[in-house]
Design a protein around this nucleic acid. Structure first.
Lengths: 184, 184, 184, 184
DNA sequence: CATGAATGAGGCTTCATTCAT
DNA sequence: TATGAATGAAGCCTCATTCAT
């Protein structure tokens, strides 16, 4: 009778500690203690620390994408749908600062392998396609679609961090620094 | 000359290894070996590993700023001077990918303390002041100056990474995604 | 029938793995998996791993002795009866290389306690008595009977290993290197 | 300034403990403690535990061979030279019971790889050649030379163990059980 | 009897740092 | 200054064993 709960407790403990102390400065012992399980228990749920880190990332990124993605892919692209997507994404980040920051940390860590990112390949491709359409329809500047997509991501990331730190309620004016930069 | 060399050899070895394997996966032993010095020698130049990391960061960031800063602070703010600054910064990053990437890695690491960042506080303040002027002179949108400054940094960072990866020769069109986003 | 089977499946799994990977490199988990039972199940049949090892040894050694012993103890000692015993023993080893090798491994392991060996004390005593008779009857050299018995064992052991490795069909010429060494 | 002494202390501690408790039941911590060094020190001298085990074996086996080998290979083969070699070998084993027993333990352990044994390949080949000569000169029975050589080894091994246990002073009569078994 | 998740002691190894030379 | 052998705390992980179901 697996306490599915336990895996979640490990996830939560790891997330807290990774954000607080950094991934490499968080020992498996500390994670176990924080999760209220024995050291060995972690290894019932994860093959090793690296796999825990990656599974944590994957689960968070999946959550992140699920939250704000549905609408965008269904509707046709418009400034409004882009804004909605951007704002929902930002809101998710602001409301989940630990998850957000862990993703950032993970992205610039050696744990961020092609292998893991491959799981989200399709999503990226879809975004690029959407952007290509936007360019053809003269919604967006004629730039490399991949550049636009990565600018979008970078702008999103930085804005979330800014909002978390300043606790500002503004959203729309920030979005416009992105949109004005890329719209046709 | 032969000997002052040693500190630099340690810096270079550390930089290479940090970028290649990550800071936490690089042992001081490995740095020493790569630098061609004894393990103990590192400790005549740096109090410990953390200090080496921070000094390396400081020296690189200083170089980065020095390169492109002079002109900007002297001239009055204009779209041209902003562009010049941005492009020179980007060029530095593209030409020094290891240094650039180490800075990124450092920024999202637990070694990135207030203490170290304080060394560049003045620079940031100057930039914010410049931006405030820009806002007053209706060159830039009326946004929090700190937001604009951090957007600038984020945009710069992401663009360098993009250029390194794609090896594109484009610059101006990328800059315009920034400028169009923030100009009045 | 279905269930008594389980103890045997554990025995077989353990035997295979012990020979393949060594006793200490075989975890109880692996044995369970290979036997197709749960980890806990092992402990309903054996008090612990050490006891499993010893019971396995005892069952194999008993089988080994049973096979070739009957005749020898009944007949009066002669070169022919010795040869028959030796050859039957060798044949058993050659046909049961895993069992044979596990016994060797067990003998030079810390699990090989007096306690376990005591179970076969009687057998050894009988052999020594037989040999004493052989010496008195001028069949065998006047050497310490225990020496002869242990030489017999060592010679048997080494020959089995040699035959397993070389796959030779020879038997008698090998036996003669033993008999010529000890006969009167 | 390497204390070459220290490597020897580790060797001796390991040897004692391996014989007393078995290789796999001896922790690196225990070896360090017994050797009077820090846990990490072992790793200055040996890459890991497996390498320590193998180097220990190699050094002991080399010593063993060196002791008794010189004469045999120089003189022409005769019953006397064989006897001399056998007795000197036995004497070495009896006088170095721990080294002897460690070699036995190593031989039937998973650490005994082809790789390590390859170091002594030449020696084995020389012995086989010598035996081939002995067969041609009708000193020895016409058996596979490798069989004779391995019988020699097994006989030697078992006899040393017997002498250690019984503390007997006999030698020659034991040798004769070997020689009578293989001489022409 | 059987299960297998959970336990936590203990094993091997790394590595930042020190210090005698 | 420079060296590098030595240190030992601390990290990751395994595994024999237990126990609630």
């Amino acid at each position: 009778m697996v306490e599915e709960d336990k895996k979640n407790r490990i996830f939560k403990a790891a997330l807290n500690l990774f954000v607080e102390k950094g991934i490499d400065n968080t020992s498996t012992y500390l994670i176990s203690k924080e999760a209220g399980v024995a050291t060995g228990t972690m290894y019932t749920y994860f093959k090793n620390k690296v796999e825990l880190i990656n599974e944590l990332y994957i689960s968070i990124k999946a959550e992140n994408l699920t939250v704000s993605l549905q609408d965008l892919l269904k509707s046709s692209l418009s400034y409004e749908s882009i804004e909605k997507f951007w704002i929902e994404s930002v809101e998710w980040g602001v409301n989940n600062p630990d998850k957000f920051r862990f993703m950032m940390q993970f992205n610039s860590s050696p744990y961020h392998t092609e292998d893991t990112e491959a799981k989200f390949r399709d999503f990226g491709k879809n975004m690029v396609k959407l952007i290509e359409d936007g360019i053809q329809n003269k919604l967006l500047k004629d730039l490399p679609p991949k550049y636009i997509w990565e600018l979008f991501s970078a702008h999103f990331t930085f804005t979330v961090e800014y909002i978390i730190q300043t606790q500002t309620k503004e959203r729309k004016i920030f979005f416009e620094t992105l949109l004005d930069g890329i719209k046709y």
